[in-house]
Amino acid sequence: MIELRDISAGYNRTRILHNINLSFEKGSITSIIGKNGCGKTTLLKTAASILKPLAGTVSLDGRDIATFPGKELAKLLSFLPQTRSIPNITAYNLVMHGRYPYLGFSRTPREEDRDIVRQAIESLNLEEYIHKNVRQLSGGQCQKVYLAMLLAQNTDLVFLDEPTIYLDINHKLEILEVIRQLKEMGKTIVMVLHDLGNALMYSDRVCLLDQGEVVIFDSPEKVFESGEIDRVFHVSSTQIRLEFEAGGGEQKQYLFSLKA
């Protein structure tokens, strides 16, 4: 379990997050939501140890995350940034980078590394374009290759910053399904999502941030019912229950509109 205690964080002495206390349960999907600039990415980066907190501690299974050597931590926790420079390499080589924490001094992949990369490629159905240059791939394909890299990194904790941003609806749903698969594999997912409907539909827990503070951190149902989403985003929200015929179960969907 990863736990944030009394965390304040920011950049160049400017505090963006204030006194955050959170913990992410094993094997769950947590979505961090909030308005632009409220500190979602800062929170994710701090929890993933990409950014050092200005105050407070992040601990992983009771041990301060700052005390882990880089490669040891990279075997436990992976992070997919939102903005990144797309490297001019093949998709296969990018997925292989996921094995970096496991490589020895010579940085030569062993047979075991190749097998894990092969499995990651197969589980996301990337065979068709795995030898293409990453820069030639569509946004959705590229995102799947990055997720395969995280799969190859093989960590229990996965942090994703806006994994569905700029994607068309087909790829967006496909990526969200992949994230669900990761959870089924027993991984803990913490992600920043700007799409409120998806965050409420796909998550076990939702963390709503406003001005660097946690407003509510609870199940999607309770977060929705609290009315805090409407207050923070200045919108009106509605929940729709879709019932499917012949025992197909039900699905909740969410609609948002501007407040009158």
Partner: peptide, 17 residues
């Protein structure tokens, strides 16, 4: 090879250890 990993960008390289 480490230069290849660094070319992924600071955050990605850091998260790879």
């Amino acid at each position: 090879y480490d230069m290849n990993v660094l070319a992924l960008g600071d955050d990605s390289a850091r998260s790879l250890g």
